[in-house]
């Protein structure tokens, strides 16, 4: 009889199993001070919108309110912590910063008034400048293609932007768009006319001049 009873032995082994799983998680996320770059962290914390990163109390309100945190590799709370310590490579290569849809929930809810959405934007820009973003990940590819087309025409046109994004990241994305593309076309919501502003030279001149200011 006693042999069929899931006695203390079985319970112990279940706990032990859980402990083993936990250990692999801990081993994977353990960080070491020598991997950190405090100077990078100090520079980031002076950028517009990032000033209050140091005041984070790690309460996790940002992660709780974020509609996308369950899909992220690091939650927003962890990103803030990584930035504060200077774990640059982990942050810049993360998918988290790109999954942020800029909905400003975290910014509005943060009890320390940290402009988390602005922090995410700063990280996106760093990742692009340093070419650290995950390769062929559609979101940064879309941002760059969007940037290029608006610079050359002054307005966005969905079709060329979407095509280039798909070709440079994952062409199979186009399959997910066939049904919706047709629906949008038959209701007159996709324009085949590619918009362009009259004074595109003026716009480009102004854009270039902003880059000459340090």
């Amino acid at each position: 009889m006693w042999m069929h009873h899931p006695g203390p032995g079985a319970a112990t082994s279940a706990v032990r199993q859980k402990a083993e799983i936990k250990m692999t998680q801990i081993a994977r996320t353990m960080k070491y001070q020598r991997e950190a770059d405090p100077e990078w962290s100090a520079r980031i914390r002076q950028l517009p919108g990032c000033e209050r990163v140091s005041s984070c109390i790690q309460c996790g309100t940002c992660s709780g309110t974020c509609p996308l945190s369950i899909y992220m590799d690091y939650t927003p709370r962890r990103v803030i912590s990584l930035i504060r310590e200077g774990f640059k490579d982990d942050v810049l290569a993360s998918k988290t910063i790109w999954l942020c849809a800029s909905c400003y929930s975290c910014t509005v809810e943060c009890p320390q008034q940290i402009h988390i959405t602005d922090v995410m934007y700063s990280m996106k820009r760093e990742a692009i400048q340093e070419k650290k973003y995950p390769s062929r990940f559609p979101i940064p590819v879309l941002a760059r293609e969007f940037y290029a087309i608006v610079r050359s025409r002054g307005r966005n046109s969905e079709i060329p932007v979407v095509l280039r994004m798909a070709l440079k990241s994952n062409p199979f994305i186009l399959l997910t768009m066939m049904k919706s593309g047709w629906d949008l076309f038959r209701t007159g919501r996709i324009s085949l006319k590619f918009e362009k502003i009259r004074k595109i030279r003026q716009l480009q001149k102004a854009l270039d001049a902003t880059k000459e200011v340090a």
Binding site: S102, R144, V150, R155, N156, I197, Q202, T210
Partner: peptide, 25 residues
């Protein structure tokens, strides 16, 4: 007259100065 794209969320992700310039124009 002759308005340009606002840059949406993409411009802010690429270059801050350009993003604010689009709206400034």
């Amino acid at each position: 007259d002759d308005w340009n794209c606002c840059g949406a969320t993409s411009y802010m992700a690429v270059d801050e100065g350009s993003a604010f310039l689009l709206s400034s124009r």
